[in-house]
Amino acid sequence: MSHQFKLWKEVSALHSKLDVYLTFEYFSLYNFCIQSSNLLFMQFSKLDQILGLEIQRRRIHKGWSQEYLAEVTGLHRTYISQLERGLKSPSVRVLSHITQALSVTMSEFLQTVEESLSVDKQRD
């Protein structure tokens, strides 16, 4: 066996060990990031769900479809759907458009959401 081949074999073996180590470290870091983001997602998703349910409750109370709410707010129907399901978080501007269309002030709307959050926390 030539000296170069032996050297190549040793370097290849070290490279494989390094790959395994780096892969393990990468996945450890990746799992930590996923767990951390899931924790944040769980905290924020409850708020998003309650905001969405309140939008939906008020829309249905008016007898409106998602399509009609989308039309009067200038938003897309699928975005309204995502908001109502708690999959998206509305910006202040979007929430302002929605509350104006639903004939409610933002403070009244958010007060209702805050009360729902408090009730939900008491259940936990």
Rank of each mutant, 00 (worst) to 15 (best):
residue 2 S to D: 14
residue 4 Q to H: 07
residue 4 Q to L: 12
residue 5 F to E: 15
residue 10 E to P: 00
residue 10 E to Y: 04
residue 11 V to C: 01
residue 13 A to S: 11
residue 14 L to Y: 08
residue 17 K to Q: 14
residue 18 L to P: 00
residue 19 D to A: 06
residue 19 D to I: 09
residue 20 V to G: 00
residue 21 Y to Q: 10
residue 23 T to S: 12
residue 27 F to R: 06
residue 27 F to N: 11
residue 30 Y to S: 10
residue 31 N to T: 08
residue 31 N to R: 12
residue 32 F to N: 12
residue 32 F to M: 14
residue 35 Q to C: 04
residue 38 N to C: 08
residue 42 M to G: 01
residue 43 Q to V: 05
residue 43 Q to N: 08
residue 44 F to D: 09
residue 44 F to V: 01
residue 45 S to K: 11
residue 50 I to Y: 02
residue 50 I to K: 03
residue 51 L to E: 01
residue 56 Q to I: 01
residue 58 R to F: 04
residue 58 R to K: 15
residue 60 I to P: 00
residue 60 I to G: 00
residue 64 W to K: 01
residue 65 S to D: 01
residue 66 Q to N: 07
residue 67 E to A: 10
residue 69 L to I: 08
residue 69 L to K: 07
residue 69 L to E: 02
residue 69 L to A: 05
residue 72 V to I: 15
residue 72 V to R: 09
residue 72 V to H: 07
residue 73 T to M: 09
residue 75 L to W: 03
residue 76 H to W: 12
residue 77 R to Y: 04
residue 77 R to A: 13
residue 78 T to M: 08
residue 80 I to H: 05
residue 80 I to T: 06
residue 83 L to E: 02
residue 85 R to K: 13
residue 86 G to E: 02
residue 87 L to I: 03
residue 89 S to K: 05
residue 92 V to D: 07
residue 93 R to P: 00
residue 99 T to L: 05
residue 101 A to M: 10
residue 104 V to I: 15
residue 104 V to N: 04
residue 105 T to D: 09
residue 107 S to F: 06
residue 108 E to M: 05
residue 110 L to A: 05
residue 110 L to S: 04
residue 112 T to I: 08
residue 112 T to R: 12
residue 112 T to E: 12
residue 117 L to H: 03
residue 121 K to Q: 13
residue 123 R to D: 11
residue 123 R to A: 14
residue 123 R to M: 12
residue 124 D to R: 14
residue 124 D to S: 15
